[in-house]
């Protein structure tokens, strides 16, 4: 009886120590946001082109880590990779007649048969602000993309930068994580809107479209 009670007490002590350590460890960890959202297909006349797309590991597993500089603030990890893939798959499938997802990175000189061009997106920068940083009651995410458009044998056609922005006011949501997620979803939607409405207006792209016998559409109101 007394042995079993001692065992139970020891078990409780161990359990308490483990739980305390876990809570301390998780309490010190960074605030993590895995961006989740739903992205509608674009309502746009698709370009009569078959596009190859390569999402590099830097893009497909994109995450942003911001280490806190003061004791009062927590570090942040914002993982956008999964949501980037969802959004760009949905968008590109609407902007182009057909999209082919490449299984490996395009290599110069090695032609990908059947595609008119290859698009390689990158996230160059991601910045965020939360009300604790700025004293403004808005959460913001700003992203800078870099796109490469290549020929089927991976020769460069165009390279350009594109920014996107999303925000959500403090009043809408309960936690920092929820608000950063919504701001990121807004930034992704904005990236899609920016791409869909400006792609055909980029000078080297216009020349490439002419070479593909695609008439320049009036894509923006």
């Amino acid at each position: 009886m007394s042995r079993s009670m001692t065992f139970a007490r020891r078990y409780q002590q161990h359990l308490f120590a483990v739980l305390l350590s876990l809570s301390l460890l998780t309490g010190c960890g960074p605030a993590t946001v895995v961006v989740e959202g739903r992205f509608p297909p674009p309502l746009i006349e698709p370009l009569p082109l078959k596009l190859g797309v390569w999402y590099g590991p830097d893009f497909a597993q994109h995450e942003f880590f911001d280490e806190s500089t003061t004791r009062g603030q927590s570090s942040w990890v914002v993982k956008t990779g999964q949501a980037q893939i969802l959004m760009w798959n949905s968008l590109l499938a609407g902007v182009f007649d057909e999209v082919v997802h490449l299984k490996s990175a395009p290599v110069p000189g090695q032609s990908i048969p059947g595609v008119d061009g290859i698009l390689v997106p990158h996230v160059s920068q991601l910045q965020y602000t939360i009300p604790k940083h700025t004293q403004v009651k808005v959460y913001e995410i700003w992203m800078l993309y870099r796109f490469e458009l290549l020929t089927p044998d991976a020769q460069p056609v165009a390279e350009w930068d594109m920014s996107s922005y999303g925000k959500t006011p403090t009043a809408f949501l309960q936690s920092d994580q929820e608000a950063v997620n919504l701001a990121a979803v807004m930034a992704l939607r904005d990236a899609g809107a920016n791409f869909a409405t400006t792609f055909t207006r980029i000078a080297p792209i216009q020349a490439w479209l002419q070479a593909q016998n695609v008439p320049a559409p009036g894509s923006s109101p």
Binding site: P40, P41, P42, R189, G192, A193, A196, T197, S220, P221
Partner: peptide, 14 residues
């Protein structure tokens, strides 16, 4: 705004 994406986003809405 989902049905008319991307034409009524903050960037593109008339």
């Amino acid at each position: 705004i989902n049905a008319l994406y991307p034409w009524f986003e903050p960037r593109t809405a008339p």
